[in-house]
Amino acid sequence: MNMGLFSKLFQSKARKEKAKKYKIGMEKTRQSVFGDLDTLLASGRRIDDDLFDDLEEAFIMADMGVDTVLSIVSHLRETVATEGIKDAAALREAIVEAMFKRYVRDEVIDTNLVIDQPLSVLLFVGVNGVGKTTTIAKVAHLLMQKGKSVMMVAGDTFRAGAINQLRIWSERVGCAFFEKPEGSDPSSVMYDAVQYAKANDIDVLLCDTAGRLQNKANLMRELEKISRVLGRAVPDAPHESLLVLDATTGQNGMNQAKIFNEVTNLSGVVLTKLDGSAKGGIALAVRETLGIPVKLVGLGETVDDLEYFDIEAYIYGLFTDLLDETD
């Protein structure tokens, strides 16, 4: 049996530790769908069309999207044929390998954020209610632990209470905070924040933006302007444009990624609320279609509940039941 990639993936102890964290966050995830997969692939089950149909169902239920799922499953069918896999249990490894390869695509994926500029500017974008503000708090906490001087910028001047929400977070994590009155032009908030940061030895700016549905043309133009203004104020800014994506999002996540990418040239995705029962499979589809990697995942409500995305740990989290058995 070909143990190559699979055993390489999960041999190291460090990796297993990391995987454990995901396992906790995704506990329910496994139980709800991938728990079924375990039964599905129980040793002795014949590999037939019914099995592939069941697999498709499991992947669809994880929100991976019709195209991605059909393509993974057809790939699995080929693997089964060429390698002469007869037993369903042997399919597990093929599944993990297929998902890993599709995600990595022979590239070196760097989940680190760009924070080494004289003034690094990180822009957080997304639709309403995905968790941008909370994510910023978590990132601020993470970067402060690395010794960076961080300032949050209250760029959501539209939603009632948004500025206060971010200010409270800045007080909790103990970082600087920049705001202008509600209703101010967000671009001008960004511009002034940059000037303030330059004068006050700030290393990293975390810029919040108002949630916006990607089909609202004028709001997307506003975002384009924010991005442009930042670029004029600081060379190459924003150094990161992060799309905050709610793990419960269905196929609309693809539209979000596409259109936000056109407007702000996304450098990565932050997948939030992965501690629920949703699997966040849309992030895999986004990577597959647009090449945008997941950089961070949100796994809870405290500032510590943020992890760098690790595809191995993610897959391991999804399939941990299956893998434990073969260990």
Partner: peptide, 12 residues
């Protein structure tokens, strides 16, 4: 419920 919710909507 958010209209953009995926398959998880039913669970929720």
């Amino acid at each position: 419920l958010d209209a953009m919710t995926g398959q998880d909507a039913v669970q929720v």
